[in-house]
Design a protein around this nucleic acid. Sequence first.
DNA 1: TTGGGG
Length: 462
Amino acid sequence: MPNPESDDYKFLRIVDATTSINQKVNLIGVVTEAGIPKQSKGTDCCCTIRIVDESNPSSGISVNVFAETFDKLPNVESTGDIIQLSHVVMKLHGSEVNAVFNKRFSAFALYEGSDFSNFVPYQVSSKFHAREQDNKFIADLRKWTITHLPETESNGFFQLNSIKQGIRSNLICKVLHICEVTQGEWMLFVWNGTDAPPLDIHSKLEEELKNPLCLQLEEPPLSRDVLCSFPTVGTVLRLTADRCNARLALQLLKVGRWVQFRNIQFEAREGLWCGILMHSSKFSYLSDDNKVVLEFQREYKKRFKGKWTRMPLSSFPWPPNLTKTEHEHVPLVTLMDIITYPKVLYKYRCVVRVVATLPGEATNFRGPSGIYRLRLTLEDATARIHACLYDKDAEKFFGGYPDDDKMIKLHKVLLGIDENNGKARNPPWIDCCLKSYYVDKSDMWGSRRYGIFDTKFIGLSD
DNA sequence: TTGGGG
């Protein structure tokens, strides 16, 4: 029986714990963030979580937890939840003090942060023993949390529009999907309703046949079923952990939850945005009624208010007048709308960029018989697709059969090729009509293709 | 033991 008078009963305030180096202490605190669970260099799994209390409400201390398996690590449901830690050892690391959870003698229990009537922990470690007296501390901490838990940092740039290459930043997003891309390496698909900005394209057009610009970063591509579960507006950002090590337990993240990531590196891969989880990246789950989460959802809903609101945010207010379609009354859709449209055969209008052509040389757009046959790689903020531009549709697009000089010029404008800017191109947004169709009646979805039609290029002044 | 960081 624990004796209420003994030291074993006491919880130390975090400030007091930081002066108890190398001592075993009991702590109770509010979880503000967690590191991604990892395999340790030894035989264990580990994760670091940060906790605060009334005595240290801003920085708090980090707790390093070790366990034999991932599911024995504390799996914090939401930022603001309460963790009770027994027999953790305070360790000095540089000038910082951490608490170390040792699986041989430490114990933890996790409680919901906001349900004031619930004193049953939702996760406990094997050595945890519940005590009647703990409830008072949990209740007090909950009361304190209402007024003192730091707000979600809304001043950081969480909008995808402001991400920059090579810069680390924070991101608030919803986890849509997680999949294993190569053995032990997981990819996260996240979204917050905003568009990532368009990137320069560096692929070599003359190598488009042998080494085509990819349509997505994951291999194999996601199934149609998974794609159909994604929102069709706003960028679905791919996040990987390949920079730190492939053993990160990314698959433990909860699909469907809003998360705040800290210290994510953003990079361009194949002209597509990729978020990279670093060793020092942290995350915390946000509740669905979190202020910032609700703000993202409000902003997202606004994107559907008008007829043209599915246009990429970065082409605002209107794409440059390079093309003209014969269906200007038709509302715009995104490429994800097209990919996930429930019918194989349909017609659409969208605003896209031409990021590659096959053939890569404008002088080869027509086959030996003189008929146009091109494949364009199109992208918007939501996806990339291949679209054909054949025969009569191409004749309409190019305004007949321009000579080589004119076609080369046209190609450069269409792909945003700037001779002065080395190999990179920055394709402009164009307005175009697309149709979806099939080439094999026995496998209509499997052989679904896209083609440009009823669109005319008018971007050359002469 | 491990980790905490780049």
